[in-house]
Simulated assay, not measured.
Amino acid sequence: MNITFRYAKLTDLPKIVAIYNQTIKLKNITADIRPVSVSERKEWFASFSNDSHPLWVLINEEGEIVGWVGLEPFYGRAAYEKTAEISLYLDENYRGQHLGTKTLEFISAHLKKLGIQNIVAFIFKQNTASLNLFKRHFFEEWGFLPQVAQIDENYLDLVIMGRHFANDQ
């Protein structure tokens, strides 16, 4: 499948939220346990900057948004300015079509101009598809937090995946 990327616009927020909310019912992708609303996500959306920490949407050949990816500041302290946290979500109808791979390749190509050298991803251990995606793209386990989240009666482990890109640029 061919996809293109563009910076997200506020008018995209309902679709971004809808895609995110699809993952909540799976109970192993996000730590939210109830759907979020568009109004709840407006401040989050406004925190992105095309110059340093962008939010992109993935567009299919028909012009539909089929996913989104964002780079957020890591931990909010100046010494971490070259490190970003990545969030990547795909519409449930488009998973398993290598869009994650295309997205990570796209991100890698844009890091230098953004001044980002490191990316971290917080992934539940139980989300094997995402873990495998990031491992295939040379992310390594940088941390492990056992049973730090509870969804229903299940305790989930958080894996912190990371990659240094400074040598790639």
Rank of each mutant, 00 (worst) to 15 (best):
K82L: 08
K82N: 13
T83N: 01
A84G: 01
E85K: 10
I86S: 05
S87E: 09
L88C: 08
L88G: 00
Y89D: 00
Y89E: 01
D91Y: 11
N93K: 05
N93Q: 11
Y94N: 09
R95L: 04
R95P: 01
R95H: 05
Q97M: 04
Q97N: 13
Q97I: 04
Q97S: 02
H98R: 05
L99W: 00
T101Q: 15
K102S: 11
T103R: 00
E105H: 09
E105W: 06
F106A: 04
F106M: 09
S108K: 02
H110K: 14
L111T: 07
K112Q: 15
L114M: 12
L114D: 09
L114E: 02
L114T: 03
G115M: 05
I116N: 03
I116V: 12
Q117R: 14
Q117F: 15
N118S: 06
N118I: 10
I119M: 03
A121D: 00
A121S: 07
F122S: 05
F122D: 01
I123L: 06
F124W: 00
F124L: 02
F124A: 01
F124K: 00
K125Y: 02
K125H: 13
K125S: 14
Q126K: 01
N127A: 09
A129C: 05
A129P: 08
S130E: 07
L131A: 11
R136T: 11
F138A: 14
F138E: 15
W142K: 08
W142P: 03
G143D: 04
G143T: 14
P146V: 07
P146T: 11
Q147L: 12
Q147W: 08
Q147S: 06
V148E: 12
A149R: 12
Q150N: 09
Q150F: 05
Q150R: 13
I151S: 01
E153T: 11
N154K: 05
N154Y: 07
Y155I: 10
Y155G: 07
D157E: 06
L158E: 10
V159R: 01
V159G: 03
I160L: 12
I160V: 10
I160Y: 05
